[in-house]
C-alpha cells in the first residue's frame, strides 16, 4: 500500500515569514452536545480537557479544538486515527454523537517567523493583537474557509484539501519580502 501524501507534498516558501505545508495529520470531527461521557472520551484520546468556546487545548502532537457548540476537532498522529475512532466509539457507545475521519479532507500549513501574523493579517479578518494563546479562530483566508491558531512561535492554518494550492498561493503572495505591514 502507498504512503498517504499531503495535498502539496510538503511545499514551502521563504519570504518575510516561512510557509510550510505539513501533514498528513490525523483529524477527526467529533459532534456531540450534553453528553456526560464526552470529557472522559476526549481525555482518553488527546489527553486534554474539553476546550472552552473558541479555544484549542494542545498536548504535544495531539489537540482538541472547539469548532461550534456541538462540534470539536480532534488532532492526533495520522496513524492513530483508526484507534482513536475506535476508542471514541467505545466511550460514547449509546450516546448520540458523530465521530468521523476528516484527516484527508484537510490541508495544514505552518506560518512561522517574527512577522508571521502580518501574512495572515492580509488574508483574514482577525484581530491578531487580541488573539489569545490557545484561541482557535474559524475564519476565512481570502475567499475560502480556514481555521487558525497560534502555536510554537507561529501559526497553524487549516483549510480544505481541494483549495490547498490556492491557500499556498495566498500565503506566498502575502509573505513576499518587503511587504511587511
Amino acid at each position: 500500500m502507498s504512503e498517504p501524501v499531503s495535498a502539496l507534498g510538503g511545499a514551502s516558501f521563504h519570504g518575510f515569514a516561512t510557509i510550510r505545508e505539513i501533514g498528513p495529520l490525523g483529524m477527526i470531527t467529533l459532534r456531540a452536545k450534553g453528553v456526560k461521557a464526552l470529557d472522559k472520551a476526549v481525555k482518553a484520546v488527546t489527553d486534554t480537557k474539553l476546550p472552552a468556546p473558541r479555544r484549542i487545548e494542545i498536548n504535544g502532537e495531539k489537540a482538541c479544538g472547539w469548532m461550534s457548540p456541538d462540534e470539536y476537532l480532534l488532532i492526533v498522529p495520522y496513524a492513530e486515527v483508526s484507534a482513536t475512532l475506535a476508542s471514541l466509539a467505545k466511550s460514547l457507545a449509546g450516546e448520540h454523537h458523530l465521530a468521523v475521519d476528516v484527516s484527508d479532507a484537510r490541508a495544514i500549513f505552518r506560518v512561522e517567523g517574527d512577522k508571521a501574523a502580518d501574512v495572515l493579517r492580509k488574508l483574514s479578518p482577525v484581530d491578531f493583537e487580541m488573539l489569545q494563546p490557545g484561541e482557535l479562530r474559524r475564519t476565512r483566508a481570502a475567499q475560502v474557509a480556514a481555521a487558525m491558531w497560534a502555536q510554537d512561535a507561529g501559526f497553524t492554518v487549516v483549510c480544505f484539501r481541494s483549495v490547498a494550492g490556492y491557500v499556498m498561493g495566498l500565503l506566498t503572495h502575502s509573505a513576499q519580502p518587503g511587504s511587511e505591514l
Binding site: 495535498a7 481570502a142 475567499q143 475560502v144 481541494s162 483549495v163 490547498a164 494550492g165 490556492y166 503572495h173
Partner: peptide
Amino acid sequence: ESRGDIFQPLRRTP
C-alpha cells in the same frame, strides 16, 4: 491579491 493563479479558489481533486 485576487489575480492570476489566485484570482479565485480553484478546487483540485487528488
